[in-house]
């Protein structure tokens, strides 16, 4: 029976994949397949403002549908990918791009993790060095003359287990 399971799984999953791949584009596509591919690429990088963590390509929200249509229209007008993105950014801000641009206002976003890593590395270095110094310090404590004779006595003594 076990050989049936992958088959059954495939019977369930394959139509699902087909449905999810086509469900997005029930609407009118561009006639030129190259342009349609560009529209899809751009849409995949545009954030759906309603669902926020989905691209407009994946989202079924009304606004996402409208924005997909606008992306197609702009491409049909002959705009470049950058011009299409600029059109959307002018209206909804950088936030609409799933891949945020590198500029002054996003500096902390991009460099923050590296900064926090460096801070952590620095803190660890300081901590380890100060700990090493403490260990060295303990080592260099001199024994007093009294302790020195006592320890020599013990070391030279033949009787095991005899305490001073």
């Amino acid at each position: 029976m076990s050989f049936l399971r992958p088959v059954m799984l495939a019977m369930v999953l394959v139509p699902l994949i087909v449905i999810s791949a086509s469900a997005v584009f029930i609407e009118k596509k561009l006639e030129d397949p190259a342009q349609e591919a560009r529209a899809r690429d751009i849409s995949g990088e545009i954030r759906c403002l309603v669902c926020q963590n989905q691209s407009i390509l994946d989202s079924n929200a009304d606004l996402a549908k409208d924005l997909r249509q606008i992306v197609r229209e702009r491409i049909a007008f002959g705009e470049t990918d950058d011009e299409v993105r600029a059109f959307l950014v002018a209206r909804f801000g950088d936030w609409v791009l799933l891949d945020p641009p590198f500029k002054m206002t996003t500096l902390f976003l991009w460099l923050g993790p590296a900064l926090i890593f460096l801070l952590g590395a620095f803190a660890m270095l300081v901590f380890l060095r100060s700990r090493n110094r403490e260990v060295d310090g303990e080592k260099s404590i001199k024994l007093s003359a009294e302790e020195e004779t006592k320890i020599n006595e013990l070391l030279n003594s033949d009787e095991p287990g005899k305490n001073a």
Binding site: L49, V50, D62, L63, D66, L67, I70, R91, F92, G93
Partner: peptide, 13 residues
């Protein structure tokens, strides 16, 4: 009617 002016205003809800 089509929501195009809304998009020009950046309306998302």
């Amino acid at each position: 009617l089509k929501g195009r002016v809304g998009i020009d205003f950046g309306v998302y809800g």
